[in-house]
Design a protein around this nucleic acid. Structure first.
Lengths: 240, 240
DNA sequence: CGCTAAGTTGACTGTTCTCAAACTTGGTGG
DNA sequence: CCACCAAGTTTGAGAACAGTCAACTTAGCG
């Protein structure tokens, strides 16, 4: 399942754009100090289900998503799973590692990434304090998000978790828009393992949100019908 | 409740060592690139309950604990609380912030810290790539710990959470030692808000661990009686 | 067109929460 | 020194939320 470098490699500006590089879902290259690393980026395609790296692997590469969706996953000896994050076009991953990755990263859909050798990134950071700063800020933002997620997992009800998740996905894919279609490329099992619930509870909760008119379910996604109601649900919809 | 700078400030090497600077619980200054910032450190005493900073405050200082114990806390509008971490001598905090702190930090006991101005730390990091690297690694380790905690909160039972917490505290205060006294300077409420449980559940679970002989409770702490049993409890003690 | 994986729904169980009361503990002042 | 008080902790009984098990439906794919 490991990503094949040779077979899917693709020069950064090579003319042969595949359908994965279609402009409508392509994420722009990063701004700020991070554009320095762009010269070392290599474009790659990962098929649905392919693994970018496994937990414990040496951290050789970091990635930026151009199109598609990726999940980072932790697994314990009992087979219990925790999906740390879902990553969308524009998101970076694999930067948040020391010598080895402690989570695995897998493509949820066919995904195009730009891939940077860590060695080059680290060397560049040595010379450019601005880049080093950006990398630290990136990690700090991830840490902040992790703390918010800890709060979600430790202190929120099933309803609040699902509603918060849907709002987050909506915000990330179509900021501010109401009534638009939100793609949910992950399975119920992925959502459950992300939210600390079971697939049945996720399914039931989404059914309830439909019944109450907050969302409508389309195929492989939802539509936000009543953002207000969803946000409300976030802060104690089930609790009295 | 905000920490008073003037009244508690204390020059780094001033002779007037208070009882808080007693050598037996004093943590050594940091090694690696981090010792560079030591020249800017100022020693301070925070009384039990005092706040180093609140969520939303501009991030002006970062801290290293010399003795005592600190908690970082997130609070939401409903009054629900999440204790992100407990910090012990040698631990650093306040480094994991962007412009503002997103958690508050409070002293659990009378605590001596060394306090570094962020402005100086950042400026130093600009000039010393090694320090910048160390700061990023520090944040990365925090992120890794946050991910482990997410797993704990999302996927483990009450028994596993409490057992894991006690083992973690044991490991941090007396690595490898069995039968030693482990201080627990936090209240049951703090533990509950850290583990995503209620005080009653924490209390009941600890009572059960006592009954089973894994631990014994001393005043304001516990003694690990059977590390094996505790570790066992960690990985599915209540589950079949 | 049937196979498999994913999703839904229902009935039931159980862990954890809630509410309430009794019980420690530590500090304060008479 | 002891009584008192407040804060924290323990324990119990019952309720509720989410989990488990199982049947069924739907969707995707050869």
């Amino acid at each position: 399942m490991q990503l094949q470098q040779a077979s899917t490699a693709d020069r950064p500006r090579s003319g042969g754009a595949t359908r994965w590089a279609a402009p409508r879902d392509a994420a722009p290259p990063p701004q700020g100090g991070l554009d320095l690393i762009e010269q070392f980026g290599t474009r790659r395609l990962a098929r649905r289900g392919q693994e970018f790296y496994a937990a414990g692997d040496p951290a050789q590469f970091c990635y930026r998503i151009v199109s598609g969706c990726v999940r980072t996953v932790g697994l314990d000896e009992d087979g219990r799973r925790q999906v740390a994050e879902f990553l969308l076009p524009g998101d970076l991953f694999g930067f948040d590692s020391l010598d080895t990755h402690h989570l695995s990263a897998e493509a949820l859909t066919d995904t195009v990434v730009v891939c940077y050798p860590r060695r080059a990134v680290d060397a560049l950071a040595e010379q450019h304090p601005g880049l080093a700063r950006r990398l630290r800020d990136l990690t700090l933002r991830n840490l902040r998000r992790a703390h918010e997620k800890m709060f979600l997992l430790g202190r929120k009800s099933a309803g609040e978790r699902v509603a918060a998740f849907l709002l987050e996905m909506a915000e990330r894919t179509a900021p501010g828009a109401e009534g638009t279609h939100i793609a949910l490329p992950m399975t119920r099992a992925d959502m459950a393992d992300h939210l600390g619930l079971t697939i049945e509870t996720v399914s039931r909760t989404m059914a309830q949100l439909c019944r109450e008119g907050a969302i409508a379910s389309c195929k492989s996604g939802i539509e936000i019908r009543d953002r207000e109601a969803l946000a409300n649900f976030c802060a104690g919809g089930t609790r009295h």
